[in-house]
Write a protein that binds this DNA or RNA. Sequence first.
DNA 1: GTGAGGGGGAACCGCC
DNA 2: GGGCGGTTCCCCCTCA
Length: 234
Amino acid sequence: MWSVLGCFVDGLTGTGVGLCGMVVIVPVNVVETQSDLEVILEFLEEYYRQNSGENVDKVYLNAGVPVDGASCEQRWVSYEPPSIKPALQPFLAHEAPPALSQNTATLSGRQSLPNFVSTTKSTKHQSTATGSGRKLRLFHFLFEMLEDPAMAHCVSWVPATTGVFRFSSRNKDQLAALWGQRKGNKRPMTYQKMSRALRNYSRSGEIFKVKKKLTYQFSPNTLMSLQKCHRRGF
DNA sequence: GTGAGGGGGAACCGCC
DNA sequence: GGGCGGTTCCCCCTCA
């Protein structure tokens, strides 16, 4: 018995047919005995093994290298990478997988990796590989997702001007899984764990919990920095 | 009563 | 080795 995994993949990205543009056949008993997420992750790992090759690191090594010595935010803001999606590049930079950094641009794309799939083994190794030391932070990632219309099914502004955003009850774990992929976590990231990290932001004052379900808010300063960076991209 | 979501403590990990 | 930024586990609470 076989099952079509394509629906899971599309479900994960939530953008329907055409985002990943592929259908994968897996034994149905795999789906029955493991959670969907595990199936997806196993598939992604296998896909990565089959398609990554040595060029992946080279792609990353071609990315820009921010100035050492600057603060995390300074480095993040000051970096102006070339090409594809300028508004998002400051976040994506060399940390983000090329496929993801072209997320929107490749919406109509078809046969390559799913856009959310990291083509690197781990972000923790990327900084070492590039020697930059710049790490992608969760709130950067969230802002990036919020600015990406293709991810509106997972997280959206409510409204953007106030910095309030809300996760989709249905797709919040997909976004979390994406974050986990991006970070190269060993175990699948869940919304529960990601929200734990978000709650930690309330201590540093970068993001606050809004008293509504699945709703958070960027602090004014954080939002300004993020928007400033966004504008610089254009 | 139940499940989903929220809150937080604590230990742990990897990177700089 | 210490700080940072999560990650993971766990327990408890609230609310629909």
